[in-house]
Design a protein around this nucleic acid. Sequence first.
DNA 1: TAGATTGTTAATCGATTAACAATC
DNA 2: TAGATTGTTAATCGATTAACAATC
Lengths: 225, 225
Amino acid sequence: METKQAISIETISRLPKYLAFLREYHKKSNNSLYISSAIIAEHFEITPIVVKKDLAKVSTKEGRPRMGFLLPQLIEDIEDCLGYNNVKDAVLVGVGRLGGALLDYDGFRQYGLNIVAGIDRDQAVLGISPGGRRIVSLDNGAEIIKRLKIHLGIIAVPGKSTQEVCDYLIECGIKGIWNFSPTHLKTPDNIVVKNEDMASSLAVLSIQLKETIHREYMNLGEHSI
Amino acid sequence: METKQAISIETISRLPKYLAFLREYHKKSNNSLYISSAIIAEHFEITPIVVKKDLAKVSTKEGRPRMGFLLPQLIEDIEDCLGYNNVKDAVLVGVGRLGGALLDYDGFRQYGLNIVAGIDRDQAVLGISPGGRRIVSLDNGAEIIKRLKIHLGIIAVPGKSTQEVCDYLIECGIKGIWNFSPTHLKTPDNIVVKNEDMASSLAVLSIQLKETIHREYMNLGEHSI
DNA sequence: TAGATTGTTAATCGATTAACAATC
DNA sequence: TAGATTGTTAATCGATTAACAATC
């Protein structure tokens, strides 16, 4: 087996998709204990070579020629790699409509994410969320972060105060930030930031869409002659 | 000037960030008409070469040595490239908490995105959203998509029915899909899909965070000897 | 002028893709 | 056995980075 290298961001991004498919596949076909790269690749319409390489990175047991990978083992390996098995506590700052939706989103649990509390500076939203989570003030939030040694912060406040909130979280001991606001955050080197950048996504989608529609329009032109 | 090539996805993803900064910069410093790659690069803590290359792709007027790019011109060029100036109509299916937040999110307007209506199969949510947008049934939604020739669909329904909704939208004439559900969508070749994949983002963040914390822990160990 | 910044060309780097022996 | 699938090694490709002449 190849010596395990650092796993690339590209590979990591694909792993959750694989995992969801494998879990589903495992449930549906109780009889098949093995799964091949080809089957996964076919489902996602990507080349099997990519899948093969990705799996080689995360699998602790070698795949078997002709058979593929042992399904339960592979599921466990990916879960371990992604840290789905040890719960990651987090706080979420900014319980507006988007923040509120994220705070109560049940799906995160399956990724091992546990949002311990919502934090907001607006007195009016403090208390309990519709989903049953605590929403506390900035001061109380800081206390919780420190006491529970929470490392992960989710920011869902509107643009203006994002940097301020970010600084505050770092001061409290937060090491990783998942940023849903469109603002670029300035952080020290030892802080990890992941931007959920909808403007970027939309830009990519809309340019690709423009190209597609343009192409179809041209084809239509040819045909109609 | 270099002949304009297709713009890479990486470049497109960065453009909205540049644009936001340039707009801000333009407002703050009314006196400076020019801006250099170096200044943009400094703000985002990336190398100026990347910025220079990106701007070369989108600028219609050459930059001037020693000066940089004409600020209003550059802003316009990026806006044109991203299509912020011609409004893109869209529908949004699934007016749950996340969907509702997206439906009423004002920020989209500045990206040229106009969500014409929310669509939901739950009778109870039909009517008008808190933000004042129409929420209609699947049937009425189909009628709107066809009548207004809408090309862009946003999917924010829970996992199970995502594929079904996707098929329905395509049948109505939708060409591009912005998918906020964690499911992989099967679509014909001529349909553009952009997944807003939170599981991927979280996976990347959480692995990087683990590495950071591990590294800090090791350093701490060394120091404490 | 000197120096900052541009556009362009070349080098590097890493991910994707291809090729192939090993094996069940 | 034949053929599918693996792990590994090599080739390709495209984005990032470096280098440098041109220019204001």
